[in-house]
C-alpha cells in the first residue's frame, strides 16, 4: 500500500490545480479527479462510454527497434549469401558480422520487452504454426543457430587457423550455415509484418498484405544501406538500394490510396499516422532521389532513418487504433 503521505500530497495538488498531472499513485483515494474518459455530458461517446473494444498493444520501444535490427540482420545474411556466391569475400565477411550482431541483439531486445524476462526460454515450449510469434521465436532461434556458428566457421576458414581437411570441412560448414542463415534471415525480416498483420487491431489487420512487404523491403534496404556505409560502395548494393527505395515508394502510394474510412483513421487522421508517412518518405522517394543523384551515403542514411521511424509509426498507430472503438465497429461492417 503506498503510504499515506503520497496520497495526501496528491490530494493537496488535486485541490489546488483541480486535476493530478503526473502518473500519480494508482489509488486515487478520494478527491483526485482524472481526465474523464467520457466527452459528452450524458456519458455518451461511441460504444460503451467510449471505452476501447479491443486492447492496444502493451509493447514499448524495444519492439520497433527489434523490427529494425531483425530486418537488416536477416537481409544482411541474404546479401552475405549472394556475395559469397559471387565471391565478394570482404563483403561476405562484414555482412556476416552484421547478421551475427543482429542475431545477438534481437533476442536481447525481445527479452528486455518481456513482462517476465526470466521465462524467455518458454518461447520454445511448443511449436505453433498458427501463432506468428511462435514462428518468429523458432525462426530467430534457427537464424541465431546458423549465423553465429557460420561466422565462426567463416572466420576460422578465412584466417586458415586449421589446415587441410578441417579447413575444407569448415569451408563446407560455412557455406551450408550461410545458406541456413539466409533462409532464416529472409523469414526473420518478413515474419514481423505477419506478426502485426495477424492481430485484432483494425489499422494493422486491414494492411496485413502491405506490412510484410514493407518490413521485408525495409530490412533489405537497410541491410544494403548499412553495408554501403561500412565502406562497400559496390554497384550491387546500389541496385538493391534502388530496388528497396522503389518498392517503398510504391508502398507509400498504395498506403495513401488504400483507405478504409473510420476503420483505419488512426493512420490517416491521427498524428501517429504522420510518423509512418515521414518514415515512408525517407526510405521511399527521398532515398530514391538521393540515390538517383548518386549521393549514396545520404540515401543510405535516409533509408535507415525512414525504416526505423516507420516501425515506430506502425506501433504508435496500433496503440491509437486499438483504443478507438469507432474503428473496430467500422472495420467489422465489411
Amino acid at each position: 500500500m503506498p503510504d499515506e503521505s503520497r496520497l495526501d500530497q496528491l490530494r493537496e495538488e488535486a485541490w489546488q490545480k483541480g486535476a493530478v498531472t503526473g502518473r500519480g499513485v494508482d489509488i486515487a483515494g478520494g478527491p483526485i479527479p482524472r481526465k474523464l474518459a467520457t466527452a459528452s455530458p450524458s456519458g455518451g461517446g461511441p460504444g460503451y462510454y467510449g471505452q476501447p473494444v479491443v486492447k492496444p498493444p502493451v509493447w514499448t520501444w524495444e519492439i520497433p527497434v527489434y523490427f529494425f535490427v531483425g530486418g537488416f540482420g536477416g537481409m544482411s545474411a541474404v546479401i552475405a549469401l549472394a556475395a559469397a556466391i559471387f565471391h565478394h569475400v570482404d563483403l561476405v565477411h562484414t555482412a556476416m558480422w552484421v547478421a551475427a550482431i543482429a542475431a545477438i541483439l534481437s533476442p536481447l531486445l525481445l527479452i528486455l520487452d518481456l513482462g517476465r524476462p526470466h521465462l524467455f526460454i518458454n518461447m520454445l515450449r511448443v511449436f505453433k504454426p498458427q501463432s506468428a510469434m511462435s514462428m518468429g521465436a523458432w525462426i530467430l532461434t534457427g537464424f541465431g543457430a546458423c549465423v553465429v556458428p557460420g561466422l565462426i566457421a567463416l572466420e576460422l576458414h578465412v584466417h586458415q587457423v586449421f589446415g587441410g581437411t578441417v579447413d575444407q570441412l569448415l569451408r563446407v560448414a560455412a557455406g551450408v550455415l550461410m545458406f541456413g542463415s539466409a533462409f532464416f534471415g529472409m523469414l526473420l525480416a518478413t515474419y514481423t509484418g505477419v506478426l502485426i498483420g495477424a492481430t485484432a487491431i483494425p489499422a494493422w489487420f486491414l494492411h496485413r498484405t502491405l506490412l510484410p512487404i514493407h518490413f521485408g523491403t525495409a530490412g533489405l534496404g537497410s541491410a544494403a544501406a548499412l553495408l554501403e556505409l561500412l565502406g562497400h560502395r559496390i554497384a550491387a548494393l546500389n541496385f538493391i538500394g534502388f530496388y528497396a527505395a522503389g518498392i517503398e515508394t510504391v508502398l507509400l502510394i498504395w498506403l495513401s490510396l488504400d483507405k478504409h474510412g473510420a476503420a483505419d483513421r488512426a493512420i490517416h487522421e491521427h498524428r501517429s499516422g504522420w510518423l509512418i508517412r515521414i518514415g515512408e518518405i525517407f526510405n521511399g522517394p527521398l532515398a530514391l532521389i538521393l540515390r538517383f543523384f548518386g549521393l549514396v551515403p545520404f540515401a543510405a542514411i535516409s533509408f535507415l532513418i525512414g525504416a526505423l521511424v516507420s516501425r515506430f509509426g506502425w506501433i504508435a498507430v496500433g496503440k491509437v487504433s486499438g483504443s478507438d472503438p469507432e474503428s473496430v465497429f467500422a472495420a467489422e461492417r465489411y
Binding site: 529472409m186 502491405l210 521485408g216
Partner: peptide, 24 residues
Amino acid sequence: YLKSAWTAAFATAIAAIIATLLAF
C-alpha cells in the same frame, strides 16, 4: 489473416533473394 499475410511475406522474401542475386 495469417494466410494472406504469410503469402505476402514469402513473396517479399523470394523477391528479395532474387533481387539480391540479380544485383550481384
